[in-house]
């Protein structure tokens, strides 16, 4: 089975569901290691800095957003490490997956409305197109 799985999360409902599915897949293999990636979006950097009193508070906020996911991973009894990367979500996940040669990417389909999707293109769509390994999109 898969030994290195990239799980891309943003703290949303969709990514919580993706985490649950990920555990179903990962727990079948004892050597499976999850690399949980969350991307701090470049386009939100200004707002986030402006509304946070200092670096520590911002880092705490970002960790807090991932708390439900971390809890599921702990309960699922799988080995994982969480990384917060900075960049534009789609390209950053793709770069990481291809560079680190993970075996599977799991990502939630993002809840954008159809107009936003037309304009921005969904992250999961970009990931499917450009990642070199199998991708699981969780609805």
């Amino acid at each position: 089975m898969y030994n290195r799985i990239l799980l891309a999360v943003d703290g949303s409902e969709n990514s919580v569901r993706a985490t649950k599915e990920a555990i179903k897949i990962g727990s079948s293999s004892p050597n499976c290691k999850f690399e949980v990636i969350s991307v701090a979006d470049f386009s939100k950097a200004k707002i986030e800095i402006l509304h946070a009193q200092g670096k520590e508070e911002l880092e705490l906020k970002r960790r807090e957003k991932l708390a439900p996911i971390e809890q599921i991973l702990k309960q699922g009894n799988v080995s994982y490490k969480i990384k917060i990367l900075h960049g534009e979500p789609g390209p950053t996940i793709i770069d990481y997956a291809n560079k680190e040669k993970v075996e599977l990417v799991i990502i939630g389909s993002r809840g954008l409305n159809s107009l936003q999707e037309m304009v921005l293109g969904s992250v999961s769509h970009k990931v499917v197109k450009r990642v070199h390994c199998p991708v699981l999109i969780v609805k």
């Binding site: 200004k46 670096k55 990367l85 900075h86």
Partner: peptide
């Protein structure tokens, strides 16, 4: 200094 903090964050 505000900009520097933003660039700090973006580049980690």
């Amino acid at each position: 200094l505000l900009t520097a903090t933003i660039v700090d964050d973006m580049t980690g």
